[in-house]
């Protein structure tokens, strides 16, 4: 094997390969997938001089540790966390040189949930339908990282980093999700629609890349029948039979049979990717643009 590769020393709780996903195949039942915190993934790519479509690693809560076989430039952003190279502190949110064979450790998140690690050249696993993203719903793309796995790296571009350092933005204490009502708000009682935007919800520990689940007041249906399966969008607030809203994230199913009471603005979803279980969630109704 070429030395353009990365050994996984510590895979962490859940670390996956992610890029901009595979939109355009929803009609075949293929989720879009892709980095949950897109701006953070784009940032680390810029920091190491990768093109925007390069694949990065998405970590969950406790980071990961990697050993490159050749010297690389890496950048870590998303959830703030300690970064070390062979035990010595290194910068978070800035390009970091990692010599061949050195150990890069991405530590436990100090705030937020998902970290992003870009490596110069990008993670070069084989693409599936134009994307290298791991899709945890359908199983497309590479499996989540495991200890001992070796990931191929691409050739670095000659691009120079277009940013030097990034401000450290702590994830907010409360997740505010702006929603527009519908398409199935009429399947719920008027008080359920009010409850969604006034109720005290918190992020549930059952959340994952498929959906941000919530704990809080149950939303009562006005229509009791079954909804024939219909297409689902990113950010859809679907209400399953237990009445607790679920916000669809990147690995969401392309069709579903539970009514969607509202849809979250896509610009608010990166924050949802960083909300740890227990974070208060406030749904705010806004006018359609």
């Amino acid at each position: 094997m070429t030395d353009r590769a990365l050994s996984v020393v510590r895979a962490g709780l859940l670390t996956t390969v992610q890029d901009q996903g595979r939109p355009g195949h929803a009609h075949l039942g293929v989720p879009r997938s892709g980095a949950l915190d897109g701006p953070a993934a784009a940032l680390v790519n810029r920091l190491v001089g990768n093109p925007a479509e390069a694949a990065v690693l998405e970590t969950t809560l406790n980071g990961c540790a990697l050993r490159p076989r050749s010297a690389v430039t890496v950048a870590v952003a998303g959830a703030p966390c300690p970064v070390t190279v062979d035990g010595r502190p290194a910068a978070w949110g800035a390009p970091v040189h990692v010599p061949a064979g050195a150990l890069l450790d991405v530590g436990h998140a100090r705030a937020g949930l998902r970290g992003y690690v870009a490596v110069s050249g990008g993670v070069a696993v084989d693409p599936v339908l134009g994307s290298r993203s791991t899709d945890l719903l359908s199983g497309l793309g590479p499996p989540p990282l495991s200890d001992g796995m070796v990931l191929p790296l691409g050739r670095p571009d000659t691009l120079h980093a277009r940013v030097d350092v990034v401000p450290h933005v702590a994830p907010p204490a409360e997740l505010v999700l702006r929603v527009t009502p519908g398409p199935r708000a009429d399947w719920f009682t008027a008080s359920a629609v009010r409850t969604l935007t006034t109720g005290a919800y918190r992020v549930s520990s059952a959340s994952n890349r498929i959906g941000l689940r919530t704990n809080g007041p149950s939303l009562e249906r006005a229509v009791s029948g079954e909804l024939p399966s219909e297409g689902m969008v990113l950010g859809a607030v679907q209400v399953p039979p237990d009445g607790r809203p679920v916000v669809f994230l990147a690995d969401h199913p392309t069709t579903g049979g539970y009514p969607v009471i509202a849809v979250v603005r896509s610009t608010d979803l990166p924050a949802a990717a960083q909300a740890v279980p227990g974070t208060p969630v406030r749904f705010v109704a806004v006018r359609r643009r």
Partner: peptide
């Protein structure tokens, strides 16, 4: 439009510039 997703009684059009 980016996605045209037919279903049982509906067709979803996702990625429209001007849905209205």
């Amino acid at each position: 439009v980016r996605e045209i997703v037919p279903a049982a009684r509906t067709v979803l059009l996702d990625g429209l510039d001007d849905p209205a």
